[in-house]
């Protein structure tokens, strides 16, 4: 991927949630997620689990790539 395309994607990824939140939070979001502190703990926990699964996919990808390389002449 081109470097500027990567930068665009990264910016979009970072900016998108902020842009969504800036539009004013619906009641349920305020009530359930931001009502009192410590919600960031839940966010961090979910993020860790997603990263863990991504790590597993990465390892699997590497193993499959190794098999593919054996098949190439």
């Amino acid at each position: 991927m081109h470097a500027s395309a990567k930068l665009f994607l990264l910016t979009a990824l970072v900016a998108a949630p902020n842009a969504l939140l800036a539009q004013g939070n619906p009641d349920w979001l305020v009530d359930t997620l931001y009502g009192s502190g410590k919600i960031n703990t839940v966010i961090a926990v979910v993020a860790v689990i997603l990263l863990g699964l991504a790590f597993w996919l990465y390892r699997l990808d590497r193993r499959i790539a190794r098999m593919e390389n054996h098949h190439r002449p």
Partner: peptide
């Protein structure tokens, strides 16, 4: 064993974050 270690690590890190907050 590899898969169990993945879940152990996720359990440890999530637990650590939770412990820090409470």
């Amino acid at each position: 064993v590899h898969a169990s270690l993945l879940f152990a690590m996720m359990g440890l890190v999530t637990g650590s974050i939770w412990a820090r907050a409470t």
